[in-house]
Write a protein that binds this DNA or RNA. Structure first.
Length: 465
RNA sequence: GCUCCCAUCGUCUAGAGGCCUAGGACGGAGCCCUCUCAAGGCUUAAACCGGGGUUCGAAUCCCCGUGGGAGCGCCA
């Protein structure tokens, strides 16, 4: 049997970290078992669903590389099918029309709450045979009155619910539109979903869905309810925690693979390993290894993992992401080879691509010196080392890090000063700051012309001090 | 209120009854390396929610508390 898993977000809010983690586990499970991953947009709430939210889901999934084999399907385009099943339920007696008004239902709930009971529909219309004038009825599913429903969950084990705890849920509103739990059931059946992997906030919905699936004579999927992700403060993830949309992580300079790596470790582990590529995850991930407790989101650890992935990434790949980050701060670069060279030099010293861009500007233009750095390093004391090193570099034909390295060392040796006395002035001269990759590779990337020009300018500056 | 779920360092986790003097990672502290910043290496502080059982033996199994979470919508 081919595994068929799905991700079924509703576009009522922007796709966030929690949603992505659910999508990831579902996707990984399908990939691991050579199965099919389905994307389904649950947009039956016409009021709250937005085009923008749908676009974030689509763009986010694409950015992350969580590609769907089937879909995206939209529930709003399946209304005829839902209507068909509702009729079927009505005809078979699995559903009935309920003429209770919203006001009556609210009053009932209030009464039950006051009596410290669980609020639930009391079944008033269960055996009603005649319509009630002036009321557009809803359709309710006739839930079994007794017995139990066992949810066989690969993460939680067997979870038992008493049917007596469940009531007859509304599957069609008074305007005829179908509701969430019902649509999920019809879709999962029609799309032949074998594995339902979703947040454990849905665990309580599952027995109702199972009852409907049974009424339809469908084979039950395997369930896996994932623990929730909480904000860094341990409370429920919300707008307060920033990161409204996953795309924000792209804009902040996170690598998709790093974000996914971070997310997979929330609730899942593989021995002591922390760093995984996506390819490795598709080999190693198993839903049975997922734990049951909620976990808090740690921005620090994500940052660390992002750096780990940046360090390991191919410069050419980094260059692709670095380019728009530089453009965002007004530096437009067309030279992809140079971009890759910069990324290579910088990849061990940036936690995000955005940070890399911010700290790489001098590779493309130098506007002036950092005041403190210049004051400390471009002094009269620096004139001699700069002069000597400039002279040697000007004569260098083989412009590569190794050769540059030798020249800098030789200069320090000749002048009988520490390496720092030579390297730091050069660093400030070419980068305008006191921080850069090793001076030899910095100069290599900068190129001969730029280096010479900047050294001369710095020499002028230092001479005036 | 009722039902369901969950519970190991600050955080993410390892742990399937003896391997636990509870391991790793992030973050913290310190040291080393060093041309800056990083990266890397080493050291260090830091946890089994509480109480009862079961057992020769419990972080691991059972029960009861406690704490946290979810659901109980003509939302999804």
């Amino acid at each position: 049997m081919t595994v068929r898993s799905r991700f079924a977000p509703s576009p009522t809010g922007l796709l966030h970290i929690g949603g992505v983690r659910t999508a990831l586990f579902s996707w990984l499970y399908a990939r691991r078992h050579g199965g099919v991953f389905i994307l389904r947009i649950e947009d039956t709430d016409r009021e709250r669903s937005t085009e923008a939210a749908t676009q974030v889901i689509l763009d986010g999934m694409q950015w992350l590389g969580l590609t769907a084999d089937e879909g995206p399907f939209y529930q709003t385009r399946r209304m005829d099918r839902y209507a068909e099943v509702i009729e079927q339920f009505l005809a078979s007696g699995h559903a009935y029309r309920c003429y209770c008004t919203k006001e009556e239902l609210e009053a009932m709930r209030a009464r039950q709450m006051a009596a410290k009971q669980k609020p639930r529909y009391d079944g008033t219309c269960r055996n009603r045979t005649t319509p009630r004038a002036g009321v557009d009825p809803v359709v309710r599913f006739r839930n079994p009155l007794d017995g139990t429903v066992v949810v066989e969950d690969v993460i939680h084990g067997n979870v038992v619910f008493d049917n007596a705890e469940l009531d007859d849920l509304i599957i069609a509103r008074s305007d005829g539109s179908p509701t969430y739990n019902f649509c999920v059931v019809v879709d999962d059946m029609d799309m032949r979903v074998t594995h339902v992997i979703r947040g454990d906030d849905h665990l309580n919905n599952t027995p109702r869905q199972i009852n409907m699936l049974r009424a339809l004579g469908a084979t039950l999927p395997v369930y896996g309810h994932l623990p929730m992700i909480l904000g860094a403060d341990g409370t429920k993830l919300s707008k307060r925690h920033g990161a409204v949309s996953v795309l924000q992580y792209r804009d902040e300079g996170y690598l998709p693979e790093a974000l996914l790596n971070y997310l997979v470790r929330l609730g899942w582990s593989h021995g002591d390993r922390e760093v995984f590529t996506l390819a490795e995850l598709t080999q190693l991930f198993d839903i049975g290894d997922v734990n049951k407790s909620a976990s808090a989101f740690s921005p620090d650890k994500l940052l660390w993992l992002n750096q780990q992935h940046i360090m390991r990434a191919a410069p050419e790949l980094l260059a692709r992401y670095l380019k728009p980050q530089l453009a965002a701060i007004g530096i437009v670069v067309d030279d992809d080879a140079k971009l890759a060279a910069v990324a290579h030099a910088m990849r061990e010293r940036a936690k995000t691509l955005k940070e890399m861009a911010l700290n790489s500007t001098y590779f493309f233009k130098l506007d002036g010196y950092d005041e403190k750095a210049a004051k400390k390093n471009l002094t009269s004391e620096a004139v001699r080392p700069l002069t000597v090193v400039l002279e040697k570099l000007a004569a260098l034909t083989d412009w590569r890090a190794a050769a540059i390295h030798d020249i800098v060392n030789l200069t320090a040796a000749e002048l009988q000063v520490g390496l720092g006395k030579v390297a730091q002035p050069i660093r400030v001269a070419v980068s305008g700051t006191a921080v850069s990759p090793p001076i030899d590779s910095t100069l290599e990337v900068l190129g001969r012309e730029t280096t010479i020009t900047r050294l001369q300018r710095a020499l002028d500056y230092a001479s005036r001090q």
